[in-house]
Design a binder for these strands. Sequence first.
DNA 1: CGTTTACACTAGCGCTTGCTTGGTTGACCC
DNA 2: GGGTCAACCAAGCAAGCGCTAGTGTAAACG
Lengths: 194, 194
Amino acid sequence: MNVMNESPRRKELTRQAAQLFVQEGFDRTTVRMLAQEMGIKSGSLFHHFRDKQEILAAVIEEGTQNALIIAREALARCDSSASARLHAMARAHLETLLTDRSAHVVALYDWRRLDPEARAHLSHLRDAYEALWEQVIDAALAEGLIHGDRFLVSRFVMGALNWTVRWYDPEGPRTPDELADELVAMITRSGSAD
Amino acid sequence: MNVMNESPRRKELTRQAAQLFVQEGFDRTTVRMLAQEMGIKSGSLFHHFRDKQEILAAVIEEGTQNALIIAREALARCDSSASARLHAMARAHLETLLTDRSAHVVALYDWRRLDPEARAHLSHLRDAYEALWEQVIDAALAEGLIHGDRFLVSRFVMGALNWTVRWYDPEGPRTPDELADELVAMITRSGSAD
DNA sequence: CGTTTACACTAGCGCTTGCTTGGTTGACCC
DNA sequence: GGGTCAACCAAGCAAGCGCTAGTGTAAACG
């Protein structure tokens, strides 16, 4: 068993598990299905992961880590105006939602299947990510770009964005960046869309 | 087995099933748990429902029907101004999300567990509900109350509202109506939320 | 060379799952 | 007072579940 996270082999297996989890849901995915997808037998799976739950935790951790990295890079890449940072965060959010779609869908649907320890660990990661949002929204409020309650606004915005995994079609006419810009336009009063 | 929907007994059982489903999730809820919650033995369950999936469909149907009724009543009760109708829809949406919380949480999380026939049937119900929203949003766009793409705006708004089931605490300081009004304020340009 | 390590295998244990079968009960009905 | 019917029960089947134990093997290391 691999105690610490992220041997290269384990990382690849995690990626494949994510695909199956999003197709079937965590509960409906059996260790035998996972093993077959990975090209090994079900017993061999437990050389890499202590149990089934640990696979779930690995999948979610991977996705959340990436979200944090992408958001931080996006913020570092833009100037300090509230508007630019708001756009950057929204775009970054949708970018992760697309590139790590599997992991995020799993996180949204199967979060409660995590055991308490894993949940505590991943909650910290998620809180760090949400803190970025609240910070950007605070700045936008201070500049008068948006109005309302800091807590509610960030919840509403993240809700609207996360909900996109339920209806957004990457093959469709709209790019993720267009979505992000439209959302920001909607909540800023300057909102003269198109 | 009860072929048509809604004998009084079946309705009560459906209500109890909803509670368990939201606690455990559909997959994790066994027919034995359901039976115990209902005060009967697991075998007797199949006198009322053909199989486990039919219980899920009954739960979701109940919730969606109520959402439709409440929204229609709310619209009938207010004047024809776009602003009033927007507020009414948002409030109605959060009202159902609270009073039929179990059913809606189940619908959000376990929709994909429905078999194709049930899904087709319930999709129609859901589409009827969403049509109400799009109609109200069309009117708000026409009046210049909000701006942007009709499709995107309605998706964003419903996302923000549905997401509340993940964080809203009914025991907390905010009433559902306050939430609804704050959201409407956020997306209308008149939004001077104190 | 011998030892270690990573990865995989076979075989199956103990348990739970959704659901079926065949039968019992008690209230209602002409 | 025989017939009907919804509601329930006891018992259990066949399948599938997560996971373990013990073993094989080939590359890496000293």
